[in-house]
Amino acid sequence: MVDITEHFLELVRLAATDLPPDVEISLTQALEREKTGSAARGALETILKNVEIARRDSTPICQDTGTPIFYVYYPEGWSTRRLRAQIESAVAKATQRTYLRPNSVDPLSGKNSGDNLGGNYFPTIHFEEVEGDTLTVDLMLKGGGCENVGAQYSLPNTALGAGRDLTGVRKVVLDAVHKAQGKGCAPGILGIAIGGDRGSSYLASKEVLFGKIAEDNSDPQLAELETRLTEEANQLGIGPMGFGGQTTVLGTKITSLNRLPASYFVSVSYMCWAYRRRRMIFKDGEVQYE
């Protein structure tokens, strides 16, 4: 099996230092909606200037380079054991080169491993075998500030008057956005999963964040709810950084997964504006990045 550690390293560098174009466009549009001289507009100006500097200097957009979350879609015949070793080696190198901050901490001793490795969950790597001969790797760097404001609701929720339907989903998501205020580095992107168990639901709420902001949901009901939630979240007026303003969230992505009759979970993963996700496509010895 070929050694593609260097390609993984480039994937990490790109994710940490170069914000994807759709996110930057969305932030620029948000800036245009804010009043001249407002704190909200000032925040977005600073954010966009920072994006430019990070890209130019190959330095991290945000110092919290988060949990590296990999999804590896591999053709038959690849060794996941070797792929894991190569990814881990690339992550350690990326840390040495300061594309990543040492972020992996033992919760019992408090010790930081110093190289972003530690156990089977750091970095987080999901493997899935696919047909064909193309290896595709998605990487998301999800920071702790926005991870901390994520939330999971078990419906019905009496306090919010939320029943087991899309109206109930809408209510709990708005509650989560209100609770987050500016703490998750607004304007954020909402990843929402309806259904599943506690674990699968949270996982799906992150997976849905690999899609593009402007991409329409193939389910018309969910597409409508996405648009509505983005509009209503913005009506809350929390604004960039929680300074008040027009844009609290840049977009909403919703997915659903089968649930048990007894359970109806709604999981909200809040992604900060530093929405760092990149893709690597490897085929016939050639690599491409998106």
Partner: peptide, 13 residues
């Protein structure tokens, strides 16, 4: 004092 969250490369300067 509120600094701009995520503006890490800029603030480092």
């Amino acid at each position: 004092l509120h600094a701009i969250g995520g503006a890490a490369s800029l603030i480092a300067q």
